[in-house]
Design a protein around this nucleic acid. Sequence first.
DNA 1: ATATTTATGTACCATTCGGTAAATAAATAT
DNA 2: ATATTTATTTACCGAATGGTACATAAATAT
Lengths: 201, 201
Amino acid sequence: MADTKKPRGRPSKFDPEASLEIAMRLFWAHGYEGTSVAELTDAMGINKPSLYAAFGSKEELFEKALQHYIAGPIAFVSAALDEPTAYRVVEKLLSESVHFLTAPDTPRGCMVNTGSLSCSKETAAVKETLAKYRQQFETSLTARLQRAQREGDLPGQTNPATLAKYIATLHQGMSTQAASGASREALLDMTRLVLDNWPSR
Amino acid sequence: MADTKKPRGRPSKFDPEASLEIAMRLFWAHGYEGTSVAELTDAMGINKPSLYAAFGSKEELFEKALQHYIAGPIAFVSAALDEPTAYRVVEKLLSESVHFLTAPDTPRGCMVNTGSLSCSKETAAVKETLAKYRQQFETSLTARLQRAQREGDLPGQTNPATLAKYIATLHQGMSTQAASGASREALLDMTRLVLDNWPSR
DNA sequence: ATATTTATGTACCATTCGGTAAATAAATAT
DNA sequence: ATATTTATTTACCGAATGGTACATAAATAT
């Protein structure tokens, strides 16, 4: 089942998957513009041509690191949408986000939120990519809340899009809070406050 | 009353106040690292030595532009704390923030939030300055809510610090939302939702 | 008129930026 | 053994970065 046929030329001395993980951590911690190619190659232990051969460009590497981030560390976000009720979706989303955003062994804050909020004109594409992902999340959450309304666990007078924007906004704000040093306990207290005032509890 | 005594040397051909306003707009729109000194001097119509003579360094200029921003465009934030009740403080704060963050003639988002969230290690000082200002706001709001509790317009079981963090988090999230293109109407709807679920209404 | 003071414009500094050309090293195919 | 293929290392590219030395221009003081 494994790849038994040996490749033709000189073997790579680095694992692209491991390098992607390293890139993710650096972009996560310092953003797109705050991370230089030299820092990336230093951390990966490779030279620049190897990076460009494997990933194309800094921007492509960022995109791939972003995919890696979405499929890995924040997979819990889309998983939370599978909870049975709107309340439990939001409960799980917020509480898991707090734990994630304040985890001791990973950068503070969410890469999708802090990766590139304001940037030079040249880097606007990256900024918009991240904005697109945030929008996708909000759209998915809206759809999930609409389903909840059909299934009767969300009051009919609540606007799902507005509620989704509310949760997305809180989530984005929590990312800033965590990146600025807010404690896990304080953010959990805040989550409790939000859930205690949930429209349909 | 005016400054009648003529200064000694060659007169300045630029107004430092106007230049500070220009710097504020650029930093506001593109952040600290996303704005280059060359872009600043171009927009101001001066040469670099004039900028350095007037403001010291890029970082000092940013600090002064930040003061200008806090004293000007977002003076309404501390002004909102003067409203008579906790509910009206928050109502004014959120609704005015939405109008401010989505104003058509100014950059989207709040400079204190988007000025430098993630950045290279070298620029960590600017990031922390902004985090400090956000913390100051949250602390002021906490104090205001404590006063509200003493004055009886906020239920005793509510934790002012938690409630203040909640509002601050929403505010920070709204900045990201606005910077990402959220419409004024959608954000006002969201504000309405928040206020309708206010703990002590 | 001349000296002094201040701000200007020009030209430059070392460093870093993202990215690449070219030579070389290490593997397999024949 | 030799050719071919692939990835490596080294060295470099032009442009942009934040910041400054230096000569000059424009004002006042004497």
